[in-house]
């Protein structure tokens, strides 16, 4: 009991510290305020988002670990957040001149992510993907996945309309369409899919839950709880990511969060990204 009280005290102190020196001087909300709602918005363009205050997160280069990003690209992501008490939804809005949602050699996808520390702890792990023994959980949205969900066929001609293909062994006349044998033959030539590592192709969600304990340790979480969708706005992307409230947010109504944005056209992928440090996040006071 005492330990819990002390821990809460430390959290409060840290937050005071964060509130007093966090955020550029004069800038409106210096933390992400999560608006309460009975029903979470249905998508990134839902009118309900206007009830949530905008937090403008300034993005920094990931220049701590190789491979690093050398040239800054996206400088800002506007964030809104809403909760219904059990789930939290984010709207991420950023400027990006090009739509990059086709997977191909030498091409990269636009993407964004939110990161939260796992568990309730007085201090947070390193903002760069956590640290050994101190995990972070990440909800990651990718434009190529969105395009798949929006109906891009699982066919090379959807990527290269001019492609001609002589023959795939799994389309041999002896293998009935839809048969087990045909699926097995196809899996033989798609080892990643056969292992359940569906980085492209038919997907159930455009958002993936990941865990990390430091750079290079990113792993798909066992339970996939995040969902969401993205759409092109007039000048960039508008994405909604929806996931269960983190432990810290449920217990304290406060916590820390970080954001990242990848611009495919700038060759950004993996560690080459624009990101924030930890940003305080608090659920709006009230009912």
């Amino acid at each position: 009991m005492n330990a819990v009280l002390i821990r809460c005290g430390v959290v409060a102190l840290l937050l005071l510290f964060a509130a007093s020196c966090g955020g550029p001087p004069g800038a409106p909300p210096s933390e992400v305020i999560v608006a309460r709602t009975a029903d979470l918005p249905q998508g990134p363009a839902d009118a309900a988002w206007r009830h949530a205050p905008v937090y403008r997160a300034e993005l920094l280069l990931q220049d701590m670990v190789e491979p690093r990003l050398i040239e800054a690209s996206t400088s800002l992501v506007s964030v809104r957040a809403m909760t219904d008490g059990s789930e939290i939804a984010f709207q991420l809005d950023w400027k990006d001149d090009t739509r990059d949602d086709l997977p191909s050699p030498g091409r990269f996808s636009d993407a964004c992510a939110v990161q939260l520390p796992v568990g309730i702890s007085a201090d947070v792990p390193a903002p760069q993907m956590g640290e050994p023994g101190r995990a972070v959980e990440i909800s990651f949205w990718r434009a190529t996945w969105q395009a798949s969900l929006d109906g891009r066929p699982d066919d090379i001609r959807a990527i290269h309309p001019g492609a001609t293909v002589d023959h795939y062994p799994f389309e041999a006349a002896g293998l009935e369409p839809g048969s087990k044998d045909r699926a097995a033959m196809r899996a033989r030539y798609s080892p990643a899919r056969a292992l359940g590592n569906v980085m492209e192709g038919p997907r159930e969600r455009a958002v993936e839950d990941l865990l990390a304990e430091g750079p290079g340790s990113l792993t798909r979480a066992e339970s996939q709880r995040s969902d969401g969708s993205g759409r092109r706005s007039d000048d960039g992307w508008q994405v909604m990511i929806r996931r269960p409230l983190s432990e810290a947010l449920t217990a304290n109504g406060r916590g820390q969060i970080a954001f990242a944005v990848w611009q495919g056209a700038a060759g950004e992928v993996g560690a080459r990204k624009m990101r924030t440090g930890w940003v305080p996040i608090a659920i709006e006071e009230g009912s």
Binding site: P103, S104, P105, G106, R193, V198
Partner: peptide
């Protein structure tokens, strides 16, 4: 790896994403 292999003997598969 595609960028780093000087012999260009790793290939990105756009259908599996690996």
């Amino acid at each position: 790896c595609v960028k780093a292999c000087p012999y260009k003997k790793v290939f990105f598969n756009p259908m599996t994403g690996t």
